[in-house]
Amino acid sequence: MEPLIQLRNMEKVYEAGGSKFYVLRRVSLEIQPGEFVTFMGPSGAGKSTLLSIIGMLDGSWTGEYYFNGEPVHRLNVKKRNELHKANIGFVFQSYHLIDNLTVFENLEIPLSYKNVPHKERVSLVCDILDRFNIVGKKDLFPNQLSGGQQQLVGVARAVIQSPKLILADEPTGNLHSAQGEEIMELFRKLNEAGTSIIQVTHSERNAAYSHRVIQLKDGWVVSETSNAARVG
């Protein structure tokens, strides 16, 4: 089976004051469709940067990156953007819901960026509100929700466009343990339904939900461990 993600010798460098600072060094890895992978490592290891690159938010790197067989390293910004829109959903540690938009509008926004017709958008948003059991919250603004509820909306927003891949950067970092568990359970269910997930976390407990843990340090991939016993 063709890997969903294939990175070869990926490097990212910052230049500051005439000297080079490597954030990622010769990173090569493969992630299969339907896989749930965790990036772990100390602060400054390059986890979030790697996530941004895989999410195609960051285009300044060297090496090769294939997404579902498409050579991302050869695509221009527009095509890369299209690929990102069609296949990737994000979940952030700080939820990053848009403050001025209601729950309904926050869920609608990725669909509007994909030029989904209005009627279809409304129907998809209603479905997801129902699926995540947050219909009653649809007209509330983010500041009227608890952290857990905001992250729930964040996950719903990532899922609404049925992405092949969800990228989650410390998705439970700002939540208390019960809320965090709820979100991780949600990820597990999404993964079981076929969505690939990559998460960045410091939490061993969260990492236990994934199939594989990739350790990074100073920009290098230092180890890969398979999770024999997933939480379940």
């Binding site: 938010l57 527009k78 829109k85 952030f92 926004i109 990725p110 960026y113």
Partner: peptide
Amino acid sequence: VRAALGAS
């Protein structure tokens, strides 16, 4: 966030 959600 908008860019991450697919806004060109």
